[in-house]
Design a protein around this nucleic acid. Structure first.
Lengths: 234, 234
DNA sequence: GAGGGAATTTGCCTCAGCGCAAACAGCCGA
DNA sequence: TCGGCTGTTTGCGCTGAGGCAAATTCCCTC
């Protein structure tokens, strides 16, 4: 926990409305932890001992099904909470969180949640607001899965990713962490083959560039057209 | 609000841990409203003026997409909260709620939420626990949509419905409100044609009976086998 | 810089499930 | 009782996208 981290945290919308002294009290009770790439922050079904704030890096939240499928629930960027099972009355984590690059997280013991909730009401309100967005996102995803075809869903997924973790480069907007065709497939409920075919086609048309675990969107506008189904399929 | 309703409410897990006097104070601030069949309790995009407790009847929560698709998010049974946008920091309803039969709801003005949350902490905790379940359900649904085929999804949907609103009859377990093929299709991301074909096939095999807006599950076990994909397709 | 493993590309085949269309049945109101 | 409306069934053809398999390319390590 550097002072840089400290001021970074203070700027998060999550801590809006919280006095500086309170914020320090909260941070004082957390433990800063490094998670190496591909290591779990927490795992599905395990007892929820802590909740976390991602300070640096990117984390993928996945659920595994009994029959061996993996579904990516969402990606987490710096500044977001994760593993907040306690806030929702659960005692185990419903999914696993895997670091996709080396990460730094702040960890609070789960038992602290009730105290935090009553002591820092804005924190609790902000957290539940974030939960509201997640629920909203989940529903949006259900709707996508119900009504859109694969091409649209993949386009939506890429747009979501560049919005959340896009980094401008001279080529276009780069998704700022390693992501494979398989990863995109797990976000959209399709197969890596289909994703590969789509990216190839888009690359031919020149509005996406991609390589090994790497995607750059050159013209987001064209993706948007596909995502919204405003395209006569050519 | 009859005294019967009053004792019914007191029994809900939602009000667990709340003193009788507090419960009366809460109820005292609500308005009891009747909603006729097919009428909305609240509508998507509209400003969230109230949150509701369903006392009697069944409500369908739907989201409409710009391109005219409708997706059923979930069905609500008596005893469940709905329209709790305020608890999640939203100012508009993210979906519409339509009465599928004549209903009775208890409505609280939205502004009351913050007061309730601080005055009756168990109520707030219970509510967020319910939100946690919904999030869980939403994720389960995403996983279903990503990894299962239509037959499994429809089987899952029927199982969910009989679990939530099943009523034992001499024929089997009846879904206790009018539900069409189209409705099931909107729950599972398929078409009424496909649902119709499936139900016909299942009826031939004798473990489901159905008619106009009516479904009875004769052997839930057989449905479960299909839902879990433990079936060699025949 | 050679070898090996992982990620990606691509071709070919297959089929679940959708779209379309037509026929049919049950229920309600006049 | 007689339409007429809404919900349901069913046939047929088509296709998006998955499964399988092989080839290729990239990157990392030794």
């Amino acid at each position: 926990m550097t002072s840089l981290d400290r001021s970074l945290i203070a700027g998060l919308s999550l801590f809006e409305g919280i006095a500086a002294a309170d914020l320090d009290r909260m941070i004082g009770q957390a433990r800063s932890v490094r998670i190496a790439k591909d290591q779990p922050v927490f795992e599905q079904e395990q007892e929820a001992h802590s909740f976390f704030l991602l300070l640096d890096g990117h984390v993928r939240v996945v659920k595994s099904t009994p029959d061996g499928h993996e579904v990516t629930v969402r990606y987490i960027s710096p500044g977001e909470l994760m593993g907040i099972a306690h806030a929702l009355g659960r005692t185990t984590y419903p999914a696993s969180a895997i670091a996709v690059v080396d990460c730094v997280v702040l960890a609070w013991p789960g038992q602290l949640w009730p105290t935090f909730a009553t002591t820092f009401p804005s924190f609790s309100a902000n957290t539940y607001k974030a939960v509201g967005s997640r629920l909203q996102d989940a529903h949006a995803r259900i709707i996508e899965m119900s009504t859109e075809q694969v091409e649209q869903r993949v386009a939506h997924a890429l747009l979501k990713l560049i919005k959340q973790s896009g980094k401008k480069t001279e080529e276009g907007i780069l998704i700022d962490f390693p992501i494979s065709r398989q990863d995109v497939a797990e976000m959209t409920g399709t197969t890596l083959h289909t994703v590969s075919r789509l990216l190839s086609a888009w690359e031919d048309q020149g509005f996406v560039k991609s390589g090994r675990q790497r995607v750059v969107v050159v013209e987001p506008h064209r993706l948007l057209v596909i995502a919204e189904g405003r395209v006569a399929k050519g």
